[in-house]
């Protein structure tokens, strides 16, 4: 089953800006999919069209088989949305915000209260249910938006830059939660410009540039497109770098040097060679995220 099917999607704003230029995209049910691109690439416009916040200029969009031109209500029932910016009433209580959203999805009050309790407990905000939303910390506000998006039990969760501006701890917590949701069968579509996020969580990704998809593939295949990768190697004591000249080593400081590995070269072979030459290796890590390298080469 296909979760999202987009054909020749075009959006031209009244200002004349062509934000989306004939995008074709298919996201399978159960996928963890990323729309990756720089700011202004068109990611937010695409998901805003999916959820009904922006009217498309042309093209077709189907959500779990429901065409948004003809069956948008059915499509909306299957989606939960976590926008980039806080978009709840800061003067409402946490519990009310989630319960009201359930009501807007046609869930009667008894079930709305139950569902609201369930999701608030899940995101760790149950104790804050009577607090005004404006009194929550930034991380709590973001969790509130996730709870609100999940209260009607959607089959797909759409997140627009969910970890933009959040601290590392919260980011990891959110990643774990999203992985858990995905493992329960919820399709996840997220937009991000954090390549690490894509590499850590997503199975498939589309790279968007100026309103067009320039690469659409599995994250694994995208990683394979990298022809060469630079590794940073830390050692206890620097030795002459003879015998590994083919890796084009560059000394960074007295404990660190960088080497370049081609795709057909194995890191382990290099490490064995280094140990044979008497290097005491303390750390090895890639200089850049692989996708970051690809991303930069595509933009």
């Amino acid at each position: 089953m296909v979760a999202i099917e987009i054909n020749n999607l075009v959006k031209t704003y009244k200002t004349g800006t062509k934000a989306v230029k004939g995008v074709d995209l298919t996201v399978a049910q159960g996928d963890f999919f990323a729309l990756l691109g720089a700011n202004g690439a068109g990611k937010t416009t695409i998901i805003s069209i999916l959820i009904g916040l922006v009217n498309k200029t042309s093209g077709t969009v189907k959500i779990f088989g429901h065409d948004i031109d003809r069956e948008f209500d059915q499509a909306k029932r299957l989606m939960g949305v976590v926008p980039q910016e806080f978009n709840f009433n800061m003067f409402e209580r946490v519990g009310d915000i989630v319960t009201i959203q359930a009501g807007f999805f046609g869930i009667d009050r008894t079930n709305a209260l139950k569902s609201s309790e369930e999701v608030l407990k899940k995101v760790g905000l149950w104790e804050k249910r009577t607090a005004m939303a404006r009194t929550l910390s930034g991380g709590m506000k973001r969790r509130l938006m996730i709870a609100r998006a999940l209260v009607h039990k959607p089959r797909m969760l759409i997140l627009d830059e969910p970890t933009a501006g959040v601290d590392v701890q919260l980011r990891f917590g959110m990643w774990d939660y999203l992985r858990e949701l995905n493992s329960q069968g919820v399709t996840v579509l997220l937009t991000t410009h954090y390549l690490e996020e894509v590499q850590q969580m997503c199975r498939n990704a589309a790279i968007i540039k100026e309103g067009e998809i320039v690469r659409l593939d599995s994250v694994r295949n995208l990683n394979k497109l990298i022809k060469q990768e630079t590794y940073v190697i830390a050692v206890k004591k620097m030795q002459p770098l003879s015998g590994i000249e083919s890796y084009h080593p560059v000394v960074v400081d007295e404990h660190t040097f960088e080497v370049n590995l081609n795709r057909d070269e194995q890191l382990n072979d290099l490490l064995i060679k280094l140990m044979e030459h008497g290097f005491d290796i303390t750390d090895v890590h890639p200089k850049e995220q692989r996708l970051e390298k690809l991303f930069l080469s595509l933009l």
């Binding site: 009904g52 909306k76 009433n89 009201i100 807007f104 999805f105």
Partner: peptide, 18 residues
Amino acid sequence: FGAKFQRNIEEMLVAPMK
């Protein structure tokens, strides 16, 4: 206008409300 200003009007727009 308050709902527009705080963007919580989107709570209604993303829901299947007529």
